[in-house]
Nucleic acid binder design. Structure first.
Lengths: 334, 334
DNA sequence: TTGAAAGCGCTAACAG
DNA sequence: CTGTTAGCGCTTTCAA
């Protein structure tokens, strides 16, 4: 606030030239004599002048910055960001990250609002992480990671969710479990649907009838899953295993079991999805399906750069998942 | 690009009013009849119009967004961000994160450049994480986390680094180690200096003479530490323990030891600092000093809000550290 | 209650 | 090579 920032006019005045000339040296344009160039540059340094990215981008419609939009900074998006950050290095672009801050109320469509408020003026292109809406209509290049179901014309990158879920449930089945509950992630996400599908496919392949009461709709948060699990685990015929749609939900289940005095894995097996760093720290360490989050971030950024360069990246990239065995699963009791 | 975005003029034209009027309804200003108000709003909805945050902030000099500037998205800053994001929830502010992308060349002072390019127009205030320069001169409210040495007038939050380092070295000393090397973090950071100080103080208190050859200057990256450790561990009289200035550096030491066939902790003890999630996943799991990264982030944001509200937060908040024992330390061999 | 006009700080023609 | 002239999309007096 206050103490008015030094503007291009201050520099111009001080150097005894026009603002246009200053702008030219700022942007290394042709048509400035070495002498003026030097003089202006000196004044710039003296005054510690920095051009306002806002003003310049308002005018020039390009900014040299790429945006990543995440709904919240939970472990999944955080891992993904590391990959994006790694991939942007050395490209000459800068990275800014927008977090909606996890406000649930206005969650749907927030990325569209952001995009149109920022696009063309503040960022040149964007990676959307678990977007709720994906249409091509916002004028700038966009790549979506783990998108909402029904993604349209935007290039997407995701993990092999369906296969990952099958790996998880096959593992539980293999241990001898039959009553396997499923707590889903954010409804609407393609990944949620596919994991659910994998769960059903796995049961079907093993000839285990689906019990609809064992399928719960969560929202990928630990809190919600905790509440759901508290109820689930107090039923007369509780499941012997839970496949949670993501790791944070699995941690919620672990917490609920602990409160109810149910031992994991002796009396209850739990499998997660993602393999976030937190999964290892859980007690017991969580058996989970790993999706290559950092690689997904890198991939998304590479596709964005290709788009920016006028190319046409693959419209849909799917990376592999694999099961990571730790200590939250065991054969069922009795 | 292309397909020119809908502007306030489009809305005005469509609604048959002036842009001034549209602006008023956008900002809920007085002096608009209910009828026009409604009509304009309807056109806004129809057109899916979103005001450009850039244009509006250029004019009004306030944005409702808070910035966090991090040099890179490594595990430490990432954990911190989670805390900041948690604290911003429900405040009505939005959060944007700028990452310099770890470009080392222009590392020093980058936050000053960003700050003046963004300040007043793109963000209303900022949290700086491990800033290399901290002066009060950039016109907007700022709080620094883990700042450069010699921090001036800016409120800061940090962990008790000196005590943390003492805990680590005391632990090694207690196990019977005498030849304890120290690999420091980014030179210039206050935390680096204090951890070094703690290291020396601990040795001094135990009457162990300081061996200057065992103090190496790192930069907090795994790569650099790896190189340093490779040399260190091949010396004729190699140390029996290494205290790394941060966890990533400790992981670099672990990697070097593995390559050289030196068993940890049997032949070499290693202690880190931070307790990032990665520390648990290391082989062996890393004994380290925990600093409450998320709490530090929350604290910083709270102080920023206080500043924004016109208050005067504590100029220096220091949070506790504690030693986390895992499996990378043991008594020295022989 | 409304709108015309004057910028915010900068860039992009176009003249000189 | 340099400066003048128009704006970018929006907010904000200030008249009407």
């Amino acid at each position: 606030m206050s103490s008015s920032r030094t503007t291009i006019r201050d520099v111009a005045a001080q150097a005894g030239v026009s603002v246009a000339t200053v702008s030219k040296v700022l942007n290394a344009r042709y048509g400035v004599s070495a002498a003026t160039q030097a003089r202006v540059q000196q004044v710039i340094d003296e005054l510690g002048y920095q051009s306002s990215i806002v003003a310049s981008s308002l005018r020039s419609h390009r900014t040299g910055v790429l945006g990543v939009l995440v709904a919240d900074l939970e472990p999944f998006s955080t891992e993904l960001l590391k990959g994006v950050a790694a991939a942007v290095r050395g490209t000459g672009y800068e990275l800014v990250i927008y977090s909606a801050g996890g406000r649930s109320g206005e969650r749907v469509g927030w990325e569209r609002r952001y995009l149109s408020r920022l696009g063309g003026t503040l960022i040149d292109a964007a990676v959307l992480v678990t977007p709720t809406v994906v249409d091509a209509d916002h004028g700038l290049p966009v790549v979506a990671v783990d998108p909402h179901a029904g993604a349209a014309s935007v290039p997407t990158v995701s993990a092999d969710n369906q296969r990952g879920a099958r790996l998880a449930v096959d593992h539980l089945l293999g241990l001898g479990h039959h009553r396997i509950a499923f707590i889903s992630g954010w409804p609407g996400l393609e990944s949620t649907r596919l994991r659910h599908e994998g769960y059903r496919a796995s049961l079907a392949a093993a000839g285990v009838p689906l019990d609809a009461d064992l399928v719960l709709e969560g929202d990928a948060t630990q809190e919600r899953s905790h509440v759901l699990a508290l109820d689930l685990l107090q039923r007369p015929e509780r499941p012997t295993a839970v496949f949670a749609g993501n790791d944070m939900a699995a941690l919620g289940v672990l917490a609920a079991a602990r409160e109810l005095g149910i031992a994991v894995p002796e009396q209850l097996s739990v499998v997660g999805f993602d393999n976030v760093p937190e999964a290892v720290m859980a007690t017991p360490a969580l058996t989970t399906v790993e999706q290559p989050m950092q690689a997904m971030g890198e991939q998304a950024l590479r596709m964005l750069l290709e788009l920016l360069a006028g190319g046409t990246p693959a419209s849909r990239v799917v990376l592999d998942t694999r099961l990571v065995l730790r200590h939250s699963t065991a054969p069922p009791p009795f």
